[in-house]
Simulated assay, not measured.
Amino acid sequence: MSVEFNNGTDFVQFSNANAAAVLRALGLDPVDEYGEIGGELPGGEFHDRALMALATDPMEATPTFRDGGWIQVGRGAAYMQERLPELVDLACGAGRVWWG
């Protein structure tokens, strides 16, 4: 499964687990009122949140682990530093950014 962040013209795609981590880094609850990963913000607010998350990222790695039949692949310490600029660019000048 994957989650797309979209501005109506372009999109950036993340796995569900990484999208949830990104949304938490932006200070947002990753799950909407229906229990799904989805939502939207004005482009300027999303842009500011992405810049703040980029500036305050603790650069912590997450381990890979097995949960029953699922393998959750970890993230390297630089993951957010590599991916958040994509969201900053996506939100730059956008009227709205939505995800789901």
Rank of each mutant, 00 (worst) to 15 (best):
S2W: 02
S2C: 04
S2G: 13
V3M: 03
V3I: 10
V3N: 00
E4F: 13
F5C: 08
F5L: 10
F5Q: 06
F5H: 00
N6V: 04
N6I: 06
N6A: 09
N6W: 10
N7D: 15
N7A: 07
N7T: 12
T9P: 00
D10V: 05
F11I: 04
F11E: 13
Q13F: 08
S15L: 09
S15V: 14
N16R: 09
A17D: 08
A19D: 02
A20P: 01
A21E: 02
A21R: 10
V22A: 01
V22G: 02
R24A: 10
R24C: 02
R24L: 12
L26D: 03
G27F: 07
L28D: 04
D29T: 10
P30C: 14
P30T: 07
V31M: 12
V31Y: 12
V31D: 10
G35K: 07
G35S: 08
E36N: 09
I37K: 12
G38T: 00
G39D: 08
E40P: 07
E40T: 12
E40F: 14
E40D: 15
L41G: 02
L41D: 07
G43A: 09
G44K: 11
E45P: 03
F46Y: 06
H47V: 03
H47G: 01
H47R: 14
R49N: 10
A50E: 00
A50G: 05
L51G: 13
A55L: 15
T56K: 15
T56Q: 12
P58A: 13
M59Q: 15
E60A: 06
A61Q: 06
T62H: 11
P63C: 04
P63E: 09
P63S: 05
T64L: 01
R66T: 12
G68Q: 12
G69F: 06
G69R: 01
W70V: 01
I71T: 03
I71A: 03
I71R: 06
I71V: 11
Q72H: 14
Q72V: 06
V73A: 08
G74A: 08
A77L: 02
A77I: 06
A78V: 07
R83P: 03
E86L: 01
E86I: 00
V88G: 07
L90T: 06
C92I: 02
A94R: 11
A94S: 14
G95T: 13
R96T: 09
V97H: 00
V97M: 08
W99D: 05
G100R: 12
G100N: 10
